[in-house]
Design a protein around this nucleic acid. Sequence first.
DNA 1: GCCGTTTTCGGCCCGACTGTTTTCAGTCG
Length: 573
Amino acid sequence: MAVVNEDIASIFNKVAAFYEIKGENPFKVRAYRNAARTIQNLGTNIVDMLSQGQDLKELPGIGKDLEHDIREIVATGRLKKLENLERSIPPALIELLAIEGLGPKKVKALHERLNITSLDDLKEAAKSGAIEALPGFGKKSVEQILKGIMLAKKEGRRFRWAIAELYANDLLDYLGRIKGIENLVVAGSFRRKKDTVGDLDILATAKNWDVITEHFVRFDKVKFVVSKGSTRSTIVLKNDLQVDLRSVAVENYGSALSYFTGSKAHNIAVRKIAVERGLKINEYGVFKGERRIAGKTEEEVYGSIGLPYIEPELREDRGEIEAAGTGRLPRLIELRDLKGDLHCHTTYTDGKNTLEEMARASLELGHEYIAITDHSKRLTVARGLDEKRLRQQIEEIDRLNQKIKGLTILKGIEVDILEDGTLDLPDSVLKELDLVVGAIHYKFKLSREAQTKRMIKAMDNPYLNILAHPTGRLIGERESYEVNIEEVLDAARERGCFLELNSQPDRLDLNDVNCRLAKEMGIKISISTDAHNTFSLNYQRYGINQARRGWLEKADVVNARGLDELKYILKRR
DNA sequence: GCCGTTTTCGGCCCGACTGTTTTCAGTCG
């Protein structure tokens, strides 16, 4: 199987973990992690870059040695360096690093002193008292290790943003009731609107901090308290979501917010610029020597190093700092820019609301138009439409368009893309529609080449406008199918097709990185809900989150256009 | 291991909390 960026990043992360346990130079470890992150965020396939003769050393954090490593991985699918490491250190030790409170030094000690090589060994040694007897360990650390082992099964668990939001709102509501709270905000990856979040970072400013800390740890969904301090406390909720609460003085709010919003990579890059200018940035402000020169607002912090405000969704060290420095930050799309929805279902197939109910709900949202795109006949479980039933729906839409004022219902279909890349309905009926959305609902496991070819073939059909949920991922449940997304994007551009950013909170497909890539290639995106009921027409806000992370602006989004312009660009030519 | 209008060597972001300490290392974010 062809090597993809994810494989290279994963190998580099493993090398970093092994080096860490070995006690290698921490900056070398960081170099591998940085390179892994750069590659993950790349969008473009490394394999393709190499075959086009591009110099990988131009990528940030990749020099002579790492380029050599990458070439080896691409050529052989393996890295000798990693295999040697795996021979000298039990690979299972990496898993131990994931346990809260166990870092490289402690894992190394456990391995060397007690010959622990697995989670089971660790559990046994913890219970037998062997760990407690080790220098540097004690009763508490054993307790923490046992707790960590219990959590390890669910290890790596991340929460979909929309789920995390429920808990965040619950906590904000609870904390907001305390007298004396001034500012209260969720920072971290939640504020950056990452598609999944690992924990919640809540930032508060208040005078009576002790009261707030006590209140926080008594939240009724707390499973246990990890730490409790004068400026920072951490709890784990019953669903295993970790929540940090941090307090700062109100005059430090901006610097603290920027600090706790991250990302870590963005912060490091920002502080590096500060150092170059003889400044120091931390959560308490911006300092010139002893003198504090900024920190009340985020604008002040960025301003201190000569940059404009950078939206949280962009703070991933993916070029936003350079863009800010040269005045080329995007003006990010907002929910209110969307004029309608181009993907939704009704009771004709597997939707829960009628055509009229969906249309009226859309009108309520202030939309100018809604496209009805029910499933096509191959999707029998959803009672997909054949030609005859689709024509009935078209007639009903004509009637409703007469009846409902202020909204235009567009006639559409979510047509199945068959295994050979042809569409599930004949052109004779597709051409009667305002738009055709195409999607893959079966045969997910085709080879990368076959799947890519299938999608491109589908776009050869001149009636296909939008490729829906283009990579098929279900967050936390199903990986994307194997597909060369760049080839698909290339083909879309040549043929005048658009790609969807499906706003279902478990899809968010295209993801942020691919949205950015599409934008750079000049391909327009439809931010639509795939709603199966009136309520989920509200999901566009989740799509907007990812669109913003993908640097999309109003001009990049198909359904940010008014009806006339939309109709114009839907005519492929 | 990367990087360089001060440097090809010597730096590499910064602080809080915990536990086991006897003044601080390890871990985390």
